[in-house]
Write a protein that binds this DNA or RNA. Structure first.
Lengths: 354, 354
DNA sequence: CGGCACTGCTAATCCGGCTTAGCAAGCGCT
DNA sequence: AGCGCTTGCTAAGCCGGATTAGCAGTGCCG
């Protein structure tokens, strides 16, 4: 510990040339600036032998770019579902030679400001502002001076900052479609509905899923057979809702649960009531929590494409960064909302209607 | 986007003093270097008004310290359980004014080397090398030149680098103790055992849990009633193991599962077999996955203290960093292994033996 | 045989802050 | 008047690399 790093000056000394020459050779401008092949080879050899690595901090100081991005989320890093969000971002960043600062605000505006400042102080090239669950939020003013992308978040007011979100509406449509295709006509919602906009406040995902579901049903001239607005989508609330449902509809043919934890609660209550999945009750859900795979039978669910979301947000951000540095063009117009497909994982929880 | 940052020179110009003076005043050395109160106040006022923030990159260049740490893991960021590991690290870092680079190696040595280099190139002050599950590993040579801490990982050979791990042995003892105290004498192991060292290779946690369990039983003159070595601790394997168990022991009084996913499999099979938790079968487990809380009845389990592990590793690392910078002393001797308590979360899965 | 272009390399400057040495003005003392 | 001390501030150099202007040496040409 504490052994000194090899600097360009060290290499220059060992190779018997000036630091300028080393810089030119290693940056590939040797031919352009007419450094002889002999010297170029010597510099490369000495540099490799000494294990020279350029100090990115120094480059950051003079060029103003650090090959570093900031990833600020409310609680995304700690969420059960969303580790893959970071994983996708991390991978995409590394593929482009960038590193990621990660920060969590816990939803606190002061923390957020502090975190953004800390990242800006470290000269990050761009910032991803992420949320654990899709939501609307105002854009912090600190983001005006830097390339930025919203992840799993939509801006409260129109802005030039692009956003990346899952396509919840399409998933809602497809979920209803899957049950309709299996011949179900009586579809009960667990978590929201049955009327339009009957969703607990603040959940963009719920609203869009419901909207997609209702539109798909409407195309067949149908309405949801029933629905329950639930504030927190937890197993115990799913249990309660489905228990209630069974008193009114002792044999519901199909359940559309607004997430996997609710579906888990449904499984528990159905099993206790002697109803079998999928023979008696078909179930479709959203999120693809790990749980979904562990249930018996496996739960068919629309996955939030966390890894793809993280990856895409980094790629968009890097596009912005490079465009900003070179003055070049950006692919999509400013403020574009990118909606990513939610893959349908078909497991054993759907059967044909009887 | 692109508005220029305020530099110290800007502040100096606006305040009508030299950059040196601004530096002295803002670093608190104004009195020491005899800057008049009037000038000091003016500098502070102008600096605040202009929203000046020092460029940490620049400081990093001259002082060699960036107030930044690296967090390199195999797959910890994406693991279901271990988001809290990062959360604890993130919080502790922020409390000390440090930021964290996060990187994932996916267990690949080349990726790891690349990631460590990328962090070292960015002049991190220290590095945490973490693992998703407790394991033994050799120390990469790149860590010799920098302050480092192992997290959830033990060095293969003696080293000066400290490590932070959960105290699995103590948890194993306490788990057995909890069942013994409830009067159980026939304790079946799901996931390992019954003999000493009967654990699938490479899992330090399993070995230490088993060791603690066997020691606690031995103190009462007991041995595990049965055991199953299981390679992957997944629900389906838990189901299979407990189904097998029930053919040999139709009424097992107590199950000690080596993690919560195995316990989940046990719940499923027991319920199908008409056995009730905890009235017919008591269950204790390890990990405190979110699942444990959602089961009916709730699963009593020993939590991996992820947040505390992350937090402690950062605190240890900062101790090393500061000791290295000031030449000062470190709390614990080099190479100390810090074992953190695994809290016992008592839910509804234990009843008195009949 | 002087002027010019070309070759091959280096000195100097900058990025933004920290650090150390040192300068000018004012004052008291002998 | 001359010396030294204190007060209040600044110039200059450094960290490690990128960039640009420019400097010797050589060969060619008129």
């Amino acid at each position: 510990m504490g052994r000194k790093r090899v600097t360009m000056a060290d290499v220059a000394l060992a190779a018997g040339v000036s630091p300028t020459t080393v810089s030119l050779v290693l940056s590939g401008r040797g031919n352009e600036l007419r450094i002889s092949d002999a010297v170029q080879q010597r510099v490369h050899a000495v540099s490799d032998e000494m294990g020279y690595r350029p100090n990115i901090v120094s480059i950051g100081l003079s060029k103003g770019t650090t090959r570093t991005l900031g990833f600020v989320s409310d609680t995304v890093a700690t969420s059960q579902l969303a580790g893959d969000l970071i994983k996708g971002a991390l991978e995409a960043a590394r593929e482009h030679g960038y590193m990621l600062f990660i920060g969590e605000t816990e939803g606190d505006a002061a923390s957020e400001q502090q975190l953004l400042d800390a990242m800006l102080d470290r000269q990050v090239d761009g910032i991803i502002l992420a949320s654990m669950f899709t939501r609307l939020r105002p854009l912090p003013p600190a983001l005006e001076d830097v390339a930025a992308v919203l992840l799993n978040t939509l801006p409260l007011e129109p802005t030039t900052v692009p956003a990346v979100v899952p396509d919840e509406y399409a998933a809602g449509r497809a979920a209803a479609r899957a049950l309709l295709d299996a011949g179900h006509r009586q579809i009960h919602l667990v978590g929201a509905g049955p009327e339009a906009h009957a969703v607990s406040a603040g959940t963009v995902a719920g609203r869009e899923r419901l909207s997609g579901i209702r539109d798909a049903l409407a195309e067949e001239g149908l309405e949801p057979a029933s629905g329950h607005v639930i504030r927190d989508w937890l197993p115990e609330n799913g249990r309660r809702a489905v228990a209630d449902l069974l008193t009114a509809f002792p044999a519901p043919g199909a359940l559309l649960c607004f997430n996997d934890r609710l579906a888990f609660g449904a499984y528990q209550v159905l099993q206790e009531a002697g109803l079998r999945v999928p023979d008696d009750v078909s179930i479709v859900s959203f999120d693809d929590a790990p749980l979904a795979e562990w249930l018996e039978p496996g739960l068919s669910t629309f996955a939030i494409p966390h890894e793809a979301l993280g990856r895409r947000s980094v790629e968009l951000l890097l596009e912005l960064v490079h465009a900003g540095q070179s003055g070049g063009p950006v692919g999509a117009p400013p403020g574009t909302v990118h909606r990513l497909d939610m893959p349908f994982l078909v497991r054993g929880s759907i059967a044909a209607a009887r």
